[in-house]
Nucleic acid binder design. Sequence first.
DNA 1: GCCTTAATAT
DNA 2: GATATTAAGG
Length: 303
Amino acid sequence: MGKEVIRMSGDDDDEHVPEWETGLPEGDDLTPLSQSLVPSILALAFSIIPERSRTIHDVDRASRVTISSLRSSSNGNGYSAATEDVVVVVDRVGSSSHGSDPKKQRRSDGGGGEAAAVDSMAEEEGDSGTEKTLKRPRLVWTPQLHKRFVDVVDHLGIKSAVPKTIMQLMNVEGLSRENVASHLQKYRLYLKRVQGLTTEDGPYSSDQLFSSTPVPPQSFQDGGGSNGATGKLGVPSMIPMPVYGNHVGMMQGQYHQYRDHGKYHQYRDHGNESNQYMMQQQNRFGTMVTSPSVGGGGDVNDK
DNA sequence: GCCTTAATAT
DNA sequence: GATATTAAGG
């Protein structure tokens, strides 16, 4: 349990999951998920190779990779989705579900194991059912999750990216507005820092310092460390993630689901409602991370 | 009510 | 020490 070896090699499977694609818009109908977060000039200065804008196809591909990997490794792990109920929509506990929610739409059937991460670690409180009282495990922003976050923020524009909107666009079950807000806070701090270094700060005094950390080597992927998400680079560990093709951490995603937050719908239209097309690429891969090092689980932490 | 900022907990 | 969660202010 303590270790899930992730291997992303043969990623070019051609496994499609038709069910998930029905109803989804064509890739060409969608606007690019993101654009380069770093201005070209800046990128040039830092020797960052601008990546092409991502499209739904990219996301789809990533999803497939994830799925295939899950399938191949689902045996050894306890999180193999039982059979059905994979998608868990936790928001609103008592509400009768209607089948129209985009979130619920995605259903995987035996085999695929994609669903919310509700992980269960919530053993302590009694039982399932009262998600409201459950304590939510600490959310771990995996590279993938973060990437998605960045994509969305980038898509919205840093100025209009607010927690709620971001959360909606990310469309990740179990992710609360608070989670996003917190992460956004950190992200803004990071951006500010970067900007400070490049613009107002003198010439290129510390550019080198920064350019040396365009991408975290592998510190992100910690296998057992709880939040080792960041090594100790001299810089904030949040990097917009040029990591494309570096799917190393793809599987490790795991976030947990917490109390119901689902209370809002989407009343205030921000003008962009083009969401939904983002498929969830990482949902419940149950690994736990949080703390105790070893499979254990018990990290109930929280306060 | 939501967003931002600050403090606290893990 | 770093990151996430929680609380308070705007």
